[in-house]
Amino acid sequence: MAINTDKNVYTVVFASIMVVVVGAILASFASGLRPRIDENERFAKQQNILYAMGVHENTEDSGVNFIPTDRVENEFANYIKEQYVLNNNGDVEQYEEAYLLDLKKQIAALKKGEEAKLPFFIGEKDGKKSYILPMYGKGLWDAIWGFMALDENLVVQGVYFDHKGETPGLGANIKLRYFMDDFSGEYVVDGNQFKGIAVAKGNNDPLNENKEDYEVDALAGATITGNGVAAMIKESLNLYKPYLQTVRIN
């Protein structure tokens, strides 16, 4: 039987069937894989938070080596002692699984004046406390985000940065060790001023020996991504300022 595929009715029927079939295939695919994807995302977040506070498997010359996924859940429970949220009034309350909150949504809510819950975490490693802040900002092409671990004096213990679509080989290098390692030991607060850390070109300190200049050496060819990182750090510090001020007095 030959079908006349030029008829309008046939075209509409074909299109409708196609939409239903494709929709069904994609929906079953998505819901079938959802638990696995969620788990991967959760593990990645745990790995990133632990990385910022210095819990990783880096060796002297290695790249970024996270705690492997099969151990990360236990290690996360070991090192991250408390999870909190900071609300609009500057009040802090304990919050279970705060690390799963989406910072982007919380910042958006805050800017609209709605109720926001800004997550942060307190970790402990070798008897030293880490105050770990998440951060979210924009690079050249798309979102950038990360975590920063501070000690009681608000000196940076470590950072982790990631990005959605920065230029490979240029801005994308913010997630490489030679950039992130520079932040360790940097000061972010000068007296009462939350200065953050500028990602500076020509700061005459490419080996980053001066830790009190509020600067790290920029990535060549990635000016806008670097500025984005600096702006993100500053914004995040200011978001958590009400809490961080109480930390330092203690």
Binding site: T5, F14, I25, L33
Partner: peptide, 25 residues
């Protein structure tokens, strides 16, 4: 033999998009 020629480009796009989403997932 069953794709209506009037919307064949759309059908092609749907097939590519579906496969790409599957690869991504």
């Amino acid at each position: 033999n069953v794709i209506p020629s009037k919307i064949r480009i759309i059908v092609q796009l749907v097939v590519v998009a579906t496969l790409v989403i599957m690869v991504d997932q």
